[in-house]
Design a protein around this nucleic acid. Structure first.
Length: 311
DNA sequence: ACGCGCTTGAATACCTGGAA
DNA sequence: TTCCAGGTATTCAAGCGCGT
């Protein structure tokens, strides 16, 4: 409470605007200074606007009104408010909490990452427009791809309804599939937290690892370091970086290699397996093993070159 | 009237550079 | 170090025009 501010309000001649009070417990949500000013004036009553809602909603409203027109909250106060809001309203988007608490969206995102309540955070967020958006769109896109594979004639709305995504996203998935691209962009759709990369959703890396792990023990097995390096950097990210590298892009062989790498970033192994007729299974399986062995040879040659170069 | 594909406007997260 | 602003890519619901 700022006594000087309340005194200034009391000296104002006109009627004080109504304060906001939670009807359930009669606690003042917004207008403590106006209430004190009325007391200084000697008023016995003050106009009140009642708020109907839970204590958590009342706190959210109190922060919003204070940020909007109250005395400026300190940075620590705003951070504490944002932290409390994301605990009581985990469905709110970072921007919505930022608007309510007077912080930037990045600051809110950082608080959310550090929050011990991170495990309780939902997989969807409700934006300021009231619309629900997923944090990880890859699962919905994968479901859409499966629906399209099972029923290529299905309309976008039907695909969207079955996959639980919007028609626009379903349309994008279908467009990508027709272009021979994976249903989800290479860029990781999951907002990975740097502190916990292991919690990230499956990416093309998972598919690559599955190939490696599926090799029989008699096949060449990468050294222990390989899996660690694969797990710490998403293939989509690495592929994007390589695709921008002029030393590869500007050479025919480099572009050929990039195309091969992109074509191998396939995530739909299950649907591909289903597409193989029984009489072709052995043949395609043999080819897959040969190609896998070729990739391992390439990897070992490159690492051998790296080792000899660093000595 | 209904369902379709497509577009639009507004929102999201993430990244980068600059300011405090 | 923290935050903000601008840009990019993506997603959403709503609305449009079109065909049945």
């Amino acid at each position: 409470m700022d006594q000087e501010h309340a005194t200034q309000l009391a000296e104002y001649d006109g009627p004080l605007p109504p304060i906001l009070v939670n009807r359930s417990d009669l606690r003042v949500i917004d207008g403590m200074h106006r209430l004190l000013a009325a007391y200084i004036r000697g008023q016995e009553t003050i106009d009140v606007e009642f708020f109907e809602g839970s204590p958590e909603d009342a706190f959210l409203r109190a922060v919003e009104t204070n940020v909007a027109h109250g005395l400026p909250l300190s940075l620590a106060d705003r951070r504490a408010a944002a932290s409390r809001i994301m605990t009581t309203h985990p469905q709110m988007s970072d921007r919505a909490i930022a608007r309510a608490s007077g912080l930037g969206s990045k600051a809110v995102a950082a608080i959310r990452r550090r929050s011990t309540a991170a495990e309780a955070q939902l997989n969807t967020r409700v934006g300021r427009d009231g619309r629900v958006r997923p944090l990880n769109s890859a699962e919905g896109r994968q479901r859409a791809a499966e629906v399209i594979a099972q029923n290529p004639e299905a309309s976008l709305r039907e695909v969207a309804r079955l996959a639980g995504i919007s028609p626009a996203t379903a349309g994008d998935v279908r467009k990508r599939l027709r272009a021979g691209e994976p249903p989800a962009p290479a860029r990781p759709a999951v907002r990975e937290t740097p502190e916990d990369p292991a919690s990230a959703a499956p990416t093309p890396a998972t598919a690559a690892d599955e190939v490696t792990l599926a090799l029989p023990s008699s096949e060449k097995v990468p050294r222990p370091g390989h899996r660690t390096r694969l797990a710490t950097r998403a293939p989509g990210t690495m592929l994007d970086k390589l695709s921008r590298d002029p030393s590869l892009r500007l050479k025919e062989d480099g572009r050929h290699l990039l195309r091969l790498l992109q074509q191998n970033a396939v995530t739909q192994w299950s649907s591909l397996t289903a597409a193989v007729p029984p009489h072709c299974g052995e043949l395609i399986g043999s080819l897959a093993r040969q190609y896998a062995a070729n990739w391992l040879d390439l990897a070992e040659q490159l690492e051998e070159r790296e080792r000899s170069g660093s000595l």
